[in-house]
């Protein structure tokens, strides 16, 4: 299932292809914005400027999928999560590189980009040695 980038979202997907997470910040109210938009959904102003996020965050919730459809049917079980990025926005992703049963709400995770077919997609894996990264 390849995402279909559009005029709002192409810089985001270009960033993923480059291995980084690009978000928007509203110069009017300062809020980080995801998914990408033409108008700030908080203050309805702007402009919205692209910036490169840290790519780190926390698992807000997750589910392990046991029944999936279409091209995903053969991939079960897999873990889909909502991740709260450190910049203050929430996104859907998959958690990879975590042993079964080890994913928890509140767990620190970091971006990793995987090529799936001909699409580059953002995944998150458990954050490594946070004390060293700090």
């Amino acid at each position: 299932m390849k995402p279909v980038p559009d005029a709002d979202t192409k810089p985001y997907w270009d960033g993923i292809a480059d291995g980084e997470l690009r978000l928007q910040r509203c110069e009017g109210c300062g809020a980080a914005v995801f998914y990408p938009r033409a108008v700030c959904p908080h203050c309805f102003g702007g402009p919205l400027r692209w910036f490169t996020a840290t790519g780190t965050g926390r698992v807000h919730s997750y589910t392990v999928v046991h029944r999936a459809f279409g091209e995903f049917a053969g991939q079960t079980p897999f873990t889909v999560a909502l991740v709260d990025l450190d910049e203050g926005v929430r996104m859907m992703t998959r958690i990879v590189g975590a042993s079964r049963g080890s994913v928890e709400i509140g767990m620190r995770v970091q971006l990793t980009v995987e090529q799936i077919g001909d699409a580059d997609l953002p995944r998150f894996r458990p954050q490594e040695a946070p004390e060293l990264q700090k």
């Binding site: 995402p3 999936a68 889909v80 996104m91 998959r94």
Partner: peptide
């Protein structure tokens, strides 16, 4: 549109 931020992850 907004489905590009959900459908690629395979969540039913």
């Amino acid at each position: 549109l907004t489905a590009q931020f959900e459908l690629p992850y395979g969540l039913p």
